[in-house]
Computed example of a mutant assay.
Amino acid sequence: MNNLALLTIGGTMLCCVLGVIGIHAYSSGAAQRAALVERLSQTGQIALPGRRRRRFRSIDRRVRRTQLGKKLELRIASTGLDLTPGEFVVYMLVTVAALWMIGQAMLASFFGPLCGLLGIYVAMAFLNWQRQKRIEKFINQLPELSRILANATQAGLALRMALSMAADELEAPAGDELKKVADQLAVGRSIDEALGELAKRLPSRELVVLVTTLVLSNRAGGTVVGSLRNLTETLEERKETRREVRTQLSQVSMTAYSVPVIGVGSLLLIDNMQPGALDKMTGSSIGQVAVVVAFALYAVGFVIIRRFSKIDV
C-alpha cells in the first residue's frame, strides 16, 4: 500500500514537473514566434492583422540588396514614414513618368526628360524634408528628455531603465526612437551602440551632445544628474535661439523657392501668349543649350540663396 501511494505521489509530481516544463516551452516558443513575426512585419515580408499590407515585395527585396537600397532604407527610417524602399522606388518612378508626360504635354517634348529629372529631385527632397522635420521635432523634445533622464537618474534608476521610462512618457518622435533604443538594449546591445545608432538616424548637434554626455557618464561611472541639469538649460536656450533664427530667415527661404517658380512660370506665360514658341525654341541645338543653361543657373541661384539662409546655431 505504501509503495502504491509513493508511486502515485511520484507519478503526480512527475506529471506536474512535465506540465510546468511544457507550459514554459510553449510560452517561450510563443514569445519567439511573436518576436519573429514582428521583425518580419517591419521588413515587409509578412503583414500583421490591422497593419497595412506591404506592396511590391519582390522589388523591395532587390532594392534592399543594393548599397543604395541600404542607404535609402536608413533614410526612410529616419523620416518615420510607413514605407519600404521598394515602395518608395516604385512611387518615385511613377512620379517621374507623370512629370515627364506633363512636361511634354504642357511645354514641349524637350522638357519631358528635364521634368523627369525634376521628379527624382522632388522625391529625394521630400525625404529630406520629412527627415529634417522629424529631427526638428526631436530637437524640441530634447530638453524634456534630458529633464526626465535627470529625474530618473537622481531617483536611483539605472540609465537603461531611465531610457525605457522616457520612451513610455514622451510622444513621437522621441518616444518611438527611444523605444528602438530600449529594444536594442533589451537584446544585449551596449548603450554606446544603441545611442550611436540613434545619433546616426537623427543627426544634430544637440543630440550628439546628449549622447556624448550619457556615454561618457556610463563609461566613467560618475554622476550624470548635474550634467543633465545643465544640459537641459542649454537645450532650452538653443531651442529659443533656433526659433528666432528661423523666423528671421523665413523671407530668404521663400525667395529661394520663388526664383525657380518665376522661371518656370515665365516659360508657361510665353507659351500661352505665343503657342508653339517653346517648340520652336527647343527645335534647334542652340535653343536646347540655352534652356539647359537657364535651368542650371536657376538651380545654382536656388542653392546659393539656400546657403545664405542656412545658419548653424
Score class of each variant (00 low, 15 high):
L7T: 06
G11E: 05
G11I: 09
T12D: 00
C16K: 12
C16E: 07
V17R: 14
I21L: 15
S27H: 15
S28T: 14
A35P: 07
L36Q: 10
Q42C: 06
G44D: 02
G50M: 03
G50D: 03
R53D: 09
R53G: 06
F56A: 09
R61F: 07
R62N: 02
A77I: 00
G86K: 08
V89F: 03
V89R: 02
Y91T: 01
T95S: 13
T95Y: 08
T95R: 13
I102H: 03
L107D: 02
S109K: 10
L114Y: 02
L118K: 01
I120E: 02
M124W: 15
L127Y: 03
F138H: 11
R147E: 13
Q154I: 00
M165N: 09
E169L: 14
A174F: 05
G175R: 01
D176Y: 01
K180T: 10
D183W: 06
Q184P: 06
I191V: 10
G196P: 00
L216M: 10
R219K: 15
V224W: 05
S227N: 14
S227F: 14
E236I: 03
R238M: 05
L249D: 01
V264Q: 04
L269I: 14
A277Q: 13
V293I: 14
L297W: 05
V303I: 14
V303P: 06
